[in-house]
Simulated scan of single mutants.
Amino acid sequence: MRMESGMVSESVLDQFKSEIVVLNEIQHRHLVSILGYCLDGNVRLLVYEYMPQGTLSRHLFQWKEEGLNPLEGLKRLTIALDVARGVQYLHSLAHQSFIHRDLKPSNILPTDDMGAKVVDLDLFA
């Protein structure tokens, strides 16, 4: 994920660094793992694990254009349960409770076996 902005203030930089610390601490099988980051001038870059299936919105809303089959009921249920498990971890099982403030299909990434992982952890502690 690449984030660019004009002038990066010291407080924005501190907030980005503290978010990296949190992302490294909260690890769960239904949350996309952060592999690294880069701070170069005004560019901030987060490196997540590669998820080749794209986003859930692709499988729900653009499946015809993408040449995909519609998701079957059991796959939808599996994805919903995996997302719920990831969010439950954030809310109550992590060392500190977090709220994901931007949960939507474009922030859910299907796994190769059509489970799911939550990404873009715009977290509020």
Rank of each mutant, 00 (worst) to 15 (best):
H100C: 01
L103T: 01
S11D: 13
R29C: 04
L56P: 02
S9H: 10
G36D: 07
L93D: 13
A84H: 09
V43Q: 14
V47K: 10
G67T: 07
L56C: 03
H59W: 15
N69D: 11
M51K: 12
V87E: 04
E65K: 14
I99N: 01
P70N: 05
Q53D: 00
H28I: 02
L39K: 11
G86P: 07
D120L: 04
H30D: 04
V83R: 09
P105I: 02
V87F: 10
L35N: 12
L46C: 05
M1L: 09
V32N: 05
M1E: 11
G115D: 05
L60P: 08
E72Y: 09
D112S: 11
Y37I: 00
L93Y: 12
P105D: 03
R44T: 00
S11C: 01
L123T: 01
I34N: 08
A125P: 14
Q96K: 15
M1C: 08
G115M: 08
E4A: 08
E72Q: 15
W63S: 06
S97L: 02
D14M: 11
M51T: 10
A94I: 02
R76L: 15
E49Q: 14
F16Q: 04
L23V: 01
A80I: 06
L39C: 13
D82T: 02
H95G: 06
D113F: 09
V47I: 15
D113N: 15
Y50V: 03
L77M: 13
G67A: 08
